[in-house]
Amino acid sequence: MTAILECKHLTHYYGKRKIYEDLSFEVPRGRILGLLGKNGTGKTTTINILSGYLKPRAGECRIFGENIQTMAPSMRSRIGLLLEGHVQYQFMNIVQIEKFYSAFYPGQWRREAYYELMNKLRVAPGQMIARMSNGQRSQVALGLILAQNPELLILDDFSLGLDPGYRRLFSDYLRDYARAEDKTVFLTSHIIQDMERLVDDCIIMDYGRILTQQPVARLLGTLRRYTCRVPEQYVPDLPEEFYHPSVIRGRMETCSFLPPADVERRFAELQVPCTDLTSELMNLEDAFIGLTGKY
């Protein structure tokens, strides 16, 4: 599959603080890819680099094969951008904002897609965006992206500030649209449950690096949580293939991509004093916590 978006060897620092080093990933055409990471791991930094609002210390990002930093202005019409918190021009109302944006996308603007969503909102046409709730604002931002009808959508923390109903509405609408129209989506969210319903592939980031990039179905089909009984004073010192082992009241918990038989064999080799070893598959939120740890 052709990569619509590719980042190679990205390195970025804020002052002396390293955000990440040598980060590479790509998003194939027609896939919905979610970037998952704890606060401060560089999700928004990545979005800022991708949307051209941050120059990385090293490395480059290409969208549709063009370097973002030198991209022709017309290429931006093929990219839909949703800023964190569904930021839009607060001083406009829903009619003015549609009129404003439509002028920039002649031939591709789908006015009816925008108004279809706006009609569901039941807001007065003259109501300023500044006086709308977060949920309503999210629908305005989504409506504008749907009307723009871009090939690639870059969405920064789309669930920020939304109640469960609006979160579900946003993610379902987006998923149906992306699948039906073969759109490529790159998104971040701090609410992992929403991602599970929406994304095909995920990148899980830890501080300064990518822990894993793979289809969500494969991740959830291979990553297991292992629990077993260990002596109270046991301090786990396991190799890297076991993520974040912890012992609480004589019960050890860790995550691994290894199948149960291999884990049993490795524990025996490592002389882990464990009994009652059990394994289970997890949902995306548990998988995320399993890989990144609770702290």
Binding site: I79, L81, G85, Y89
Partner: peptide, 15 residues
């Protein structure tokens, strides 16, 4: 305010 300028600079027109 909330870096709204990003929206303007993202429009397909020379910045």
């Amino acid at each position: 305010q909330r870096k709204c300028l990003k929206l303007t600079l993202h429009l397909p027109c020379p910045q």
